[in-house]
């Protein structure tokens, strides 16, 4: 028998956090993500130089005390450009995922909960969009919308939407026939309330894991589009566009190519580590 002063059971969020904390990889990932986010937010105060300031006296200088990561083909400080480039990457990741969630979750809920012809239409369009390779569709959208960071974010967000629709629909189908949903319906709750108050919270854990993984691929996609010249436009810094220009100086100044790619790699790896950790922490089989 439980005593009167026994500690209250931990909330589901606290339980997940406790399990997540035990996963070293996920915690390292979370630490790196938070660091990159803080660097992106405080970029103007952290960067020692103006990221677009050109200097003909410091063209292609190797790393030194004055320029920690060296300088590029226009004499710009690479460290400052990396710090400011973090903004474009994090912003692109977060906004793309927000677009995918904002469109994908309501449509997935609608398809899974309403069913019938609504489900057929939404599912068929989702299948068609999923049949289009992610990067090719993003390139085509960015090409037709015009090259800019905003359009790249829209293109990546729209391209990632079908994944969110399919995931939400699948989760809704899995829980909508459960007893507690039947009970909520039978006591007279209107369908939108059942969908939003009773079904959606059960979809959230899977969405959280998927969002982390989509964030990782959104950051890679933004870098890819910027690398191709379809994302962030020069002279504004972005890790992808920095790699594009670095290609021209590979033999004379290889350090220009090392840092932006390493940053994309470490950030994407961190999101993947966190996503894996979250999935394990939320998966009842791993408890």
């Amino acid at each position: 028998m439980a005593s009167a002063n026994a500690p209250a059971p931990a909330s589901p969020g606290a339980r997940v956090w406790r399990r997540l904390r035990r996963r070293r990889g996920a915690m390292v990932g979370l630490f790196v993500i938070l660091t990159v986010a803080i660097v992106a937010a405080l970029a103007p105060w952290i960067a020692p130089y103006d990221p677009v300031l050109q200097s003909w006296t410091t063209v292609r200088k190797p790393p030194s005390a004055a320029h920690w990561f060296g300088t590029d083909e226009l004499g710009r400080d690479i460290f400052s450009r990396i710090v400011h480039g973090a903004r474009a990457s994090m912003l692109a990741g977060v906004i793309s995922v927000a677009i995918a969630i904002a469109i994908g979750v309501p449509l997935g809920l609608l398809a899974g909960y309403v069913g019938r012809w609504v489900d057929v239409v939404i599912s068929r369009v989702t299948d068609a969009l999923l049949a289009c390779p992610f990067l090719i569709l993003a390139i085509a959208l960015a090409a037709f919308l015009g090259p800019s960071l905003t359009n790249a974010m829209i293109a990546i967000g729209v391209t990632a939407t079908p994944v969110m629709i399919r995931l939400t629909r699948g989760q809704v189908l899995a829980v909508r026939s459960l007893d507690y949903v039947d009970a909520a319906t039978s006591v007279g709750n209107p369908p939108p309330r059942v969908a939003l108050r009773h079904i959606l919270p059960n979809v959230l854990p899977a969405l959280m894991v998927q969002s982390t993984l989509v964030l990782a691929s959104a950051i890679t996609s933004e870098a890819s589009l910027s690398f191709l010249g379809l994302g962030q436009q020069p002279p504004a810094p972005s890790w992808g566009s920095m790699l594009n220009t670095a290609q021209r100086s590979l033999t004379t100044a290889p350090w220009i190519a090392v840092w932006p790619g390493a940053m994309i790699f470490v950030t994407v790896l961190s999101f993947n580590l966190l996503g894996d950790g979250l999935r394990d922490a939320l998966d009842p089989r791993s408890r």
Binding site: A246, A257, G261, L269, N272, L273
Partner: peptide
Amino acid sequence: ALAGISVPNFWLGIM
């Protein structure tokens, strides 16, 4: 394997 999944292939190509 996780590194292979996370590495941007255009950077790996350059390296």
